[in-house]
Design a protein around this nucleic acid. Structure first.
Lengths: 235, 235
DNA sequence: TTTTTTTTCTGACACTTGTCATTGTTGTTT
DNA sequence: AAACAACAATGACAAGTGTCAGAAAAAAAA
């Protein structure tokens, strides 16, 4: 982890982030007050159990947010991409982080102080509104995941997860060429299964030409078939 | 379902609900504008997929909030008790309900119009704050449930769920005498397992004197042992 | 009450999934 | 480049869990 300097002006997403619509002057101030960090793959942004002093805004890269189960196994709760916030819930509740966050790729995250953030919410009511929307969105995703974990087979969940990742990791507006690059262990921890089981199912999907595997890179070839296996509705 | 008239003054929880701190006059107005419904056990408050016109505030009873899986099986996402809100997320996001809600006991819920509600949030910023807290709380619960479903055995989850219900259903300040009264099917749908499996585990726990079963009523006898089985941390 | 329906419970069995052990492969370091 | 470490893949096996079928018990209706 190292300090780095990136400007909100260059931020690829700030016009789409929850900060859109903020005055020029406040944006400049935010730009100065924030602290940006560069994280190499595998490095930790924050640990479960630690106190939250503010939020992180993902500027670049991919961040996995996970909880540790009673046996020490990671359960990935979500993967955060540029423009998304980390630690929102803990900042709001004032309680310690309920999950840890580490970088899946080399990443940059900007830290925004709690006080600064709450100042902005006071000035911009639409910011509060957008936070509620963000939380609602996360909650909906979490409840879908609960239903999936409780009722679907691992096979179904793997198909579902591959499709979701294919969608999430897709570069803007590109129609093809999405490549999922995660360790098998991370993928398994996202699906909620043992690494070996995940690998077996990937092999099966590969054999059936539903996906293409090159090292740790996975490419979805047959969405329709995966949709059917995952018993999911088309996005 | 039938119209009924209950007053916020008599509301057993309004001093603890998110509406605490609202002016007398606004409270009176809310009291008039709200619509209260009485639901007999099993009756529906709202259906997944329908549009949300406002929120419901639980006044009395127990409400199960559930999603339907791809095979039509219910997954209970949470059980809402007096003072809690139903449909908050859909009202905020403006999207259709992502879950259905039905009464587990004879219950009373008060409906508050979307417009009225947003009026109040504009006047009382602390209300927005409390909504965010509520959403954060729900999200934390959901993420814990994800980890539990992904990593724990059914046996562990049954123990965990029994303890959680014992806590949730406990009458205020009473130290003993909590009785869980749910159908086996609902319990199974809460735990995320087949009804038969749940019943077998209940029989086992009963045999080991961890719980007492009288019809559909379950009483926790040995919390410590259940905690150990559930690999949970003491509340 | 008696009858009917619903719910709970038990048994048998198959199959999905996790665990352990081993080998092959990829990528990193010296 | 060789040596090493990390990761990916496969096999064998046991245990947990879901499904189906049917009996017992409880609740609801007549």
């Amino acid at each position: 982890m190292a300090l780095i300097n990136v400007s909100c002006d260059d931020c690829p997403i700030h016009r789409k982030s929850i900060f859109k619509g903020i005055d020029e002057s406040d944006m400049l101030d935010l730009n100065i007050k924030k602290t940006c960090f560069f994280y190499r793959r595998g490095q930790v942004i924050y640990y479960e159990g630690k106190g939250a002093l503010g939020i992180y805004c993902v500027y670049q890269g991919k961040i996995k947010v996970f909880k540790l189960g009673s046996e020490g196994k990671e359960q990935i709760v979500r993967v955060a991409l540029p423009g998304e916030l980390l630690g929102l819930r803990s900042m709001i509740s004032g309680k310690p982080y309920a999950a840890s966050a580490t970088a899946l790729d080399d990443s940059v995250c900007c830290f925004i102080n709690k006080r600064k953030f709450f100042q902005l919410t006071l000035k911009y009511p639409e910011l509060s509104q957008r936070i509620m929307l963000t939380l609602s969105f996360l909650l909906e995703g979490a409840e879908n995941k609960i239903t999936s974990l409780a009722q679907k087979s691992v096979r179904e969940r793997v198909a579902e997860t591959l499709l979701a990742l294919d969608e999430t990791f897709r570069p803007d507006h590109s129609n093809d060429g999405t490549v999922i690059s995660l360790s098998r262990e991370d993928l398994a921890n996202l699906v909620g299964t043992a690494t070996e089981t995940l690998i077996r199912l990937l092999s099966e999907f590969k054999h059936d030409q539903l996906i293409e595997i090159r090292g740790r890179k996975i490419k979805v070839l047959n969405k329709k078939a995966l949709l059917k296996i995952g018993k999911a509705f088309p996005a």
